[in-house]
């Protein structure tokens, strides 16, 4: 079963990557990043059951990841709100500050 879970995680990760690279709305980009993190979580939990040394550690790590992801989502949305106040948009095409 392990390869099936890993393949599933890879699919999720690649869809998330595509969304993160293509979507213009910053909120959706954040969501796509969450999707990629979830794919990683799936891997962690799958290895915790089917890995060479099965243990609960994988699940603990998944929990940590979820925590950090939650913090990231909160800060990300806060930043977006601040950005929107300053620029009136969250369309990523409008942001090219890195060019300067």
């Amino acid at each position: 079963m392990l390869p099936s879970y890993l393949t599933m995680a890879a699919i999720l990760f690649c869809i998330g990557l595509y969304g993160a690279l293509v979507k213009r709305n910053a909120v959706i980009v954040l969501l796509s990043i969450e999707l990629m993190l979830n794919a990683v979580n799936l891997n962690l939990v799958a290895f915790s059951k089917y890995g060479v040394v099965p243990s609960l550690t994988g699940q603990v790590f998944a929990l940590f990841t979820i925590t950090v992801a939650a913090a990231e989502a909160a800060v990300g949305v806060a930043v977006l709100i601040a950005l929107f106040r300053a620029r009136g948009t969250v369309n990523l095409d409008e942001f090219d500050e890195m060019r300067r």
Partner: peptide, 27 residues
């Protein structure tokens, strides 16, 4: 991994999704 599943439902399906909807609504 029942505990992780519950956390997933609580944090992601609940909190993060609602947070994102709020984010969308506010922007």
């Amino acid at each position: 991994a029942e505990f992780v599943a519950f956390v997933q439902v609580l944090i992601y399906a609940g909190a993060v999704s609602i947070l994102m909807i709020f984010g969308i609504m506010m922007t």
